[in-house]
Design a binder for these strands. Structure first.
Length: 104
DNA sequence: AAGTTGACAAGAG
DNA sequence: ACTCTTGCCAACT
């Protein structure tokens, strides 16, 4: 049980549920996830859930990037993980969304 | 209580 | 592609 339910367990559960559906070799954007769960204005909250995802369990949070395809600032390891799954990187900090963005 | 910060998005220049 | 501004919402100070 959460020490003090961050935003509402529902929101966190919805986000993590979607993240868990992202197939290997693909990535999703915060805005995309936010829309899938019906909260397209809450894209920032999606990011916050992922940053605390470890508190809820283990999820492929490395498959989530921002709208520009840029990887998480402050987490260089993410590029390595994506590369292992077959995601081609444009730079050390960007993925090729036009090829690897997850479609629902 | 109020202002700032942040793994963001979208529009404008 | 980049920076600046606006909107959004919870956590932090």
């Amino acid at each position: 049980m959460a020490p003090s339910a961050r935003f509402t367990e529902d929101f966190a559960y919805e986000v993590l549920s979607v993240v868990g559906e992202i197939p290997e070799g693909t990535v999703a954007t915060y805005g995309q996830i936010a829309r899938l769960i019906g909260r397209n204005k809450n894209s920032r909250l999606v990011a916050r859930v992922l940053s605390h995802a470890s508190d809820y369990g283990e999820f492929p949070c490395h498959r989530v990037v921002n709208h520009a395809g840029r990887l998480v600032p402050g987490w260089p390891e993410q590029a390595f993980l994506l590369r292992q799954e077959g995601v081609e990187l444009k730079d050390a900090m960007h993925v090729d969304l036009r090829k690897y963005q997850w479609e629902c």
